[in-house]
Design a protein around this nucleic acid. Structure first.
Length: 424
RNA sequence: GGAGAGAUGGCAGAGUGGUCGAAUGCGGCGGUCUUGAAAACCGUUGAUCUUCACGGAUCCGGGGGUUCGAAUCCCUCUCUCUCCGCCA
């Protein structure tokens, strides 16, 4: 959520910057501007009346205490008009306030200056490519066939239990998942992140805080009976740890990591893109989250990107880092880097991580602030997060890229976590 | 699932119609004292909106009502805790 005063003071800037996200903000911004002005006028007027009312009430109290009934009753008569005025102004204010808010939440975050223009994923900018693509023979298999061949993942069984997109991991497949989770958590810890285990179900306030609500309800599983939501990512509960919090500047940056299952409805997806592990309704992910000082958030974004890069490197996967174009960025992000790994049998790039700086967009919603040493007024912090990493597509790429005639080789870094070095 | 209690500042906790943005204690910050620290003592210490500023307004879980006036009374919702039942 953009700050109201900021919108008011920089209307052209907001409109101009949002063009890069292919969002025409001109109408909304000018409406906000008008409403904000009259909102302030109303508040000033209402405050004056209220001030008078407060004074009068005190006088009346004083008169009663002094036993001056007559005068008190006379004074009382004068309050009714004030009361009507206040009521009217308060109602108007509430109405305008609601309108402004409804408009305000429609505005996406402003993209950072280095965000490339563009509309589709084709316009994303490849900023780095690393790792080596393996040379697999002609008999290479896609991961869903490997998963079946070695009895690692049972998609049919998941359909029986729940539905498509809820696979059952078995034996070494299950063990392999668990190894990756532990590896990722350990790496995050080494990088200075504090591990937390959040709830997998959150309330409406939390959904609003990170930007899933309102409007993106459809992406989350909703437990209507209790009005709770299954988390689409650990970003939601972990970032919301700091909702309504004022930190000391010296506590920044806050670094948290969490493993969680993630649940996404992903309505409307179909076809070969969702084959196997490519797109699931439930999957595992290790997330890293930081709360940062605004002066440091972009340096921290780079640090987070470097951390994710170190993970794919250690796993020996060919990867590339993309700077997302305005059209492909999320509503809430100011700058996002996506990581893709090359899936050698599917012969395509799979997105495995998304690392973003939200600047103050989430923090405004969360009321997440910090106080500079010796300063009285708190200021809004910046939030960032990234996948480090999401499991399914990493598993897909590892299975495919490490397949041999004798089975699937386990990357060296994972051997101690797995307890085996070959899947066969 | 049944019964009861409660929600007040960073925390604990008083306040039950006006003098209450709120006692007191703890914690935090500043100071006196000290070689330094502790102790003791003194001072200070919520957020938001609005105004160039002085100032003004709002907030005692959320919403609504009664009243000239509500943390305090009424209605309603949400949440938390305790006991019983069930249970990993």
């Amino acid at each position: 959520m953009l700050n109201l005063r900021f919108i008011q003071e920089n209307p052209e800037l907001v409109v101009e910057k949002l063009k890069k996200k292919n969002f025409d903000a001109s109408a909304i911004v000018s409406q906000i501007s008008d409403l904000y002005k009259s909102k302030n006028e109303i508040q000033v007027k209402a405050d004056q009346f209220k001030s008078e009312m407060n004074k009068l009430s005190k006088e009346i109290g004083q008169l009663f205490r002094e036993g001056k009934q007559e005068e008190a009753n006379q004074a009382k008569a004068r309050t009714s008009e004030l009361k009507d005025n206040i009521k009217q102004l308060d109602d108007d204010f509430a109405q305008i306030d609601e309108q402004v808010f409804a408009l305000q939440v429609q505005l996406p975050n402003l993209p950072a200056d280095i965000v490339p223009a563009g509309k589709t994923p084709e316009d994303n900018e490849v900023v780095k490519t690393g790792g080596e693509q393996p040379n697999l023979g002609a008999d290479k298999l896609p991961h869903w066939e490997l998963a079946e061949k070695y009895d690692l993942i049972d998609f049919e069984l998941g359909v029986k239990l729940t539905g498509a997109g809820f696979p059952v991991y078995k034996g070494k497949g299950s063990r392999f998942q668990r190894a990756l989770i532990n590896f990722f958590l350990d790496e995050a810890q080494k990088a200075g992140y504090l591990e937390v285990q959040p709830p997998l179900v959150v309330n409406e306030d939390s959904g609003f805080g990170t930007g899933q609500l309102p409007d993106k309800e459809g992406q989350m599983y909703h437990i209507t009976e209790d009005n709770l939501y299954l988390i689409p990512t650990a970003e939601v509960p972990v970032t919301n740890l700091y909702r309504d919090v004022i930190l000391d500047a010296k506590q920044l940056p806050v670094k948290n990591t969490a493993y969680s299952a993630c649940f996404r409805r992903e309505a409307g997806s179909y076809g070969k893109d969702v084959r196997g592990l490519n797109r699931l309704h439930q999957f595992d992910k290790v997330e890293v989250v930081q709360v940062a000082h605004p002066d440091q958030s972009y340096a921290i974004l780079d640090e987070m990107v470097a951390h994710v890069e170190s993970l794919v490197k250690k796993l020996g996967l060919p990867y590339r880092i993309l700077r997302l174009c305005g059209g492909d960025m999320s509503f809430t992000s100011a700058l996002t880097y996506d990581f893709e790994v090359y899936s050698a049998a599917q012969e395509k790039w799979l997105e495995v991580s998304s690392v973003s700086n939200f600047e103050s967009f989430q923090a405004n919603r969360l009321k997440l602030r910090f106080r500079e040493e010796g300063q009285k007024k708190p200021q809004v912090a910046h939030t960032l997060n990234g996948s480090a990493l999401a499991l399914p597509r990493i598993v897909a790429a590892l299975l495919e890229n490490y397949q041999t005639a004798d089975g699937i080789k386990v990357p060296d870094v994972l051997v101690p976590y797995c307890g085996f070095d070959m899947i066969n």
